[in-house]
């Protein structure tokens, strides 16, 4: 990569226009090759452990512990998946995760976008104080909040309820912060032009500011969905069983089921737990590309 960069600006070559173009295209090719090589390396690094998870999930139990490790199961089996979905109330955990993640994600995205918009582009008294508190909230380790929230939720009798899990998790410091920074980067000229055209604050948000912020909004959404889906400590403390327990809680139950870890079902459950997030990601990904091109046109 550095080699191509050096060729690109070699002072001797920059004398002639033809030479320069040639060097640039040569550098371009090298860059492309280096880029693809890097991509392949990254793909391999990312894929190896994933491959391992999937392979283990379809291995027969004794094969999991065979040395040297087998790279292909012989023969593949669905036992792991059968065990994962029957040893624990998998679909019940799955449903809880789905409900809790959906409600929390929608709440967080709506609250995050609205508060970020107010804190970035509207003028009102107390704005700075609210934002300082939001930033401070970002720094709070969840070990701090768990203690008192646990006491509070227990007193309300909300243990083993959806609201007991959802409400204490609904704070959106990260989203507010991320979206506010994004909204502030929208050129002031465009906002002023829209205002002069008679766009009210809400119209300004929907028609101007938000469409220009797609990539960040999509990134924020993906991060929110993944975080809620993966949330472990709080749902674990809040639920005693599969009535409200989420997938991570169920997974650790599966892991502890008989004292020793039975890796096959655990890995099978991992694969199953990964799928919804993957679907969300595939669905949002298309818009992310749209957003990216919109961002490129901006200037």
């Amino acid at each position: 990569m550095t080699e191509s960069a050096i060729t690109g600006v070699d002072p001797d070559e920059s004398s002639g226009r033809a030479h320069q173009a040639e060097a640039a295209s040569f550098g371009g090719v090298l860059m492309k090759v280096a880029g693809y090589a890097a991509m392949v390396a990254v793909l391999l690094l990312v894929a190896a452990p994933l491959f391992w998870i999937v392979i283990t999930s379809i291995k027969e139990r004794p094969d999991i512990y065979t040395q040297p490790a087998q790279w292909w199961p012989s023969p593949p089996t669905a036992d792991g998946y059968k065990a994962a979905t029957t040893d624990i109330e998998f679909w019940s955990y799955f449903k809880n995760s789905l409900i809790i993640t959906t409600i929390l994600s929608i709440a967080k995205i709506v609250l995050g976008v609205l508060s970020a918009y107010a804190l970035s582009l509207l003028r009102f008294p107390g704005r700075t104080i609210i934002f300082v508190i939001v930033i401070a909230a970002l720094m709070v380790p969840n070990q701090i909040t768990v203690i008192s929230n646990y006491a509070l939720v227990s007193q309300l009798g909300w243990r083993n309820t959806y609201q007991g899990i959802i409400i204490p998790l609904a704070g959106v410091a990260f989203g507010t912060f991320l979206m506010r920074n994004q909204f502030l980067s929208v050129p002031g000229e465009i906002i002023e032009a829209a205002r002069l055209d008679g766009a009210g604050p809400m119209k300004l948000l929907w028609r101007v500011v938000l469409p220009m912020s797609w990539p960040t909004l999509i990134a924020f959404s993906i991060i929110t969905v993944v975080n809620e889906w993966n949330e472990y400590l709080w749902p674990f403390l809040m639920s005693d069983d599969a009535r409200t327990g989420t997938l991570p809680v169920g997974l650790t139950q599966l892991q502890n089921n008989d004292g020793i870890t039975n890796w096959g079902p655990v890995m099978a459950a991992t694969v199953l737990a990964m799928l919804p997030v993957l679907i969300v990601f595939l669905a949002l990904q298309r818009h992310m590309i749209k957003g990216l091109t919109a961002g490129a046109v901006k200037g």
Partner: peptide, 23 residues
């Protein structure tokens, strides 16, 4: 803008106070 600002930021702020500042 003043009232709208509070309406938009208020709910997020209240949740934040309740689940973070108080703890």
């Amino acid at each position: 803008e003043r009232s709208l600002g509070w309406k938009l930021a208020g709910p997020a702020f209240l949740v934040m106070l309740f689940v973070t500042l108080y703890p």
